[in-house]
Design a protein around this nucleic acid. Structure first.
Lengths: 171, 171
DNA sequence: GCAATATACTAGGACATCCAACGGTTTTGG
DNA sequence: CCAAAACCGTTGGATGTCCTAGTATATTGC
């Protein structure tokens, strides 16, 4: 990676906001910007681990989701809902996973509109390897202390619920 | 937006991890996934506000950065470093902002390799409007309590520093 | 029972991000 | 003082995300 900056650019942005009189929103702005940047860092770590396996994070997420499904299959729209991405993003991911022989499309037995995505044996094997790699290289050394992890899960869980991601009450 | 899911998909993923014996990394996995999803939600809110102004978040960030620079100008590589994105992303953003008359490129006075990005009067005006809109529509109603904001800034600040973003000691 | 509405997936297009490679410019070093 | 190395920005390509629109299938409602 590149040389670290001498100062935190987000802290600087916050100071700029305060200097311009937007004091009340300076802190939330900094928090939101920090989330954006943190996501970027984490995503690049994950992608670096998955790349040698021929996967991207988007494809891995779909593969992992299928591997945990009881039947190893899910309708496209269900996958879209669970992964919280646009249906066309799922189409895109399935296209590539299918081309790699990791999943296959099958018609839904009763609903002609629906397409089922099924994970193949190869897909299952690769999902296992990828999960092991991510566990060992990313999740086990996230850079967050256990307390930080708890805080993040709780803060972001409330946020996502309030944003309409899900309706669970138990947070 | 779509109907909320009955249950938190990230909490489900965490349970899956635990059921497979990856108990030690289940929580960090959940925290990281939550950051990814939260970023997605926040980005879409920001983009929705900027779209009517003809801006994207990437272009807004660059425009805002320039508007805060003393001289209203920055070298490309400096902007790349401060925004923490790849140089080609800056090239892309500048191309579009320039086409819209919001910034202009100028040669560096002493270093022939370097290109300066200068914000135009129009760019300055638009940056003001965009910041006002974001402050009013996003940052002032982030969905995070003041305590959450403090926690996030501190947790993510340490994380970004440890990840090599900057070398500040004062966190 | 059939037209109107809703749902599911996909095709095409706009943007953003990164990486690899290339052509200039500047700095380093022997 | 000139060749080698470092640095800067751009082009081209791969991926991902979303949106809009279009086709096909189901469900509704009169």
């Amino acid at each position: 990676m590149t040389t670290p900056l001498p100062r935190d650019p987000i802290a600087d942005a916050r100071r700029n906001w305060e200097d311009h009189g937007w004091t009340d929103v300076a802190a939330p702005m900094a928090a939101i910007t920090a989330i954006m940047r943190t996501q970027q860092i984490l995503l690049s770590r994950v992608e670096a681990i998955l790349k040698p396996l021929g996967l991207t994070f988007a494809r891995y997420e779909l593969l992992a989701l299928l591997s945990f499904a009881r039947s190893g299959a899910l309708p496209m729209n269900k996958a879209s809902a669970l992964l919280q991405v646009h249906p066309t993003s799922v189409t895109n991911a399935v296209d590539r996973l299918e081309k790699a022989g990791l999943v296959s499309r099958a018609p839904h037995p009763t609903d002609g509109r629906t397409t089922l995505i099924e994970i193949t044996a190869e897909g299952r094997t690769l999902a296992k390897s990828a999960t092991a790699a991510l566990n060992a290289e990313v999740f086990s050394q996230s850079g967050f202390s256990p307390e930080d992890v708890d805080h993040l899960i709780s803060i972001l869980g409330r946020f996502r619920r309030d944003a309409g991601d899900f309706s669970d009450q138990d947070l």
